[in-house]
């Protein structure tokens, strides 16, 4: 299966998201074709400050994908996913805005028509692949890796159509498919990590992360699994300051890689702040 791929700005410097996604997609045969010459989606910073440019940035990415004849754009970052999807939905309802966006894009001979579908890699794996297609690659028993499945916010919200917006279960199901242990009662699965506010409002955001980490620990998790680079960084890095037992924060792709028998270096796990030891 072929998909357009939008890695987003933080993909390559993240704690092994790139390495593990590349490795896992190769095994699963989900071919991720990087969008040629993509730019930053703009995210919250642009939504918060400007009207037209906030739409032009994601529209350029989608227009590039259209130009490459890609039908779907797979994201690995919740913020990118949400930005692209939000732009697409708004542009489909506002012709005046669409026109302005296309006038801007015309400067680069690009055109946005709204044909691409916006996806997240987690949801691609769970919805497009059959469980047995994933299971057949599992060759390491990771049932002792008890996972607190952490979804963060912007994948399910505000849409709520992929999964329940308050208590999703998609990642829980994937963990079960690859044979990991999974907390059935992780209450902080959609709690906020503080996102970009963590730098300016460190103290308050630390207490948010404390709730996430302590709930995972209390319920008996051995790792927290994330699906977004900002979530991963915040929950991982916060632990430098939290007075709690350390718990590694893995990307779901790293977790899959482990089950598929890849080693930690191949999965970029040496880049985690809280080291993975099991």
């Amino acid at each position: 299966m072929k998909y357009g791929f939008f890695p987003g700005c933080t993909y390559s410097s993240s704690a092994g998201y790139k390495e593990s996604t590349e490795a896992v997609s190769k095994i699963l045969g989900t071919e991720l074709i990087e969008i040629e010459d993509w730019n930053c989606c703009g995210a919250t910073s642009y939504w918060s400050t400007q009207d037209i440019p906030a739409y032009v940035l994601p529209a350029r990415i989608m227009a590039l994908a259209e130009k490459q004849n890609l039908k779907q754009i797979v994201n690995v970052c919740n913020a990118c996913y949400s930005t692209l999807r939000k732009a697409k939905e708004k542009l489909s309802k506002d012709n005046e805005l669409l026109e302005k966006v296309n006038i801007s894009l015309a400067e680069e001979k690009l055109k946005y028509s709204g044909k691409v579908t916006i996806r997240h890699y987690l949801e691609v794996i769970v919805n497009d692949l059959k469980p047995e297609d994933i299971k057949k690659h599992v060759n390491v028993d990771i049932k002792d890796v008890i996972v607190a499945p952490y979804y963060g916010c912007q994948l399910n919200r505000p849409w709520g159509d992929l999964d329940n917006p308050h208590y999703p279960t998609m990642l829980d199901r994937l963990c079960k498919i690859i044979g990991a242990g999974v907390l059935s009662d992780f209450s902080a699965k959609t709690s906020c990590c503080g996102a970009a506010s963590i730098m300016p409002h460190n103290k308050e955001c630390l207490s948010l992360n404390q709730r996430i980490v302590s709930d995972a620990l209390f319920k008996g998790a051995k790792v927290i699994s994330t699906i977004c680079p900002l979530c991963q960084l915040n929950v991982d890095a916060s632990q430098l300051k939290l007075n709690l037992t350390k718990i590694p924060v893995l990307y779901f792709t790293q977790l899959m890689g482990l089950a598929f028998g890849l080693n930690e270096r191949e999965l970029g796990m040496d880049k985690l702040i809280v080291p993975f030891k099991i």
């Binding site: 009662d185 209450s187 709730r211």
Partner: peptide
């Protein structure tokens, strides 16, 4: 807004 078993 929420009922949770997370206690402060």
């Amino acid at each position: 807004s929420e009922v949770t078993d997370i206690v402060d």
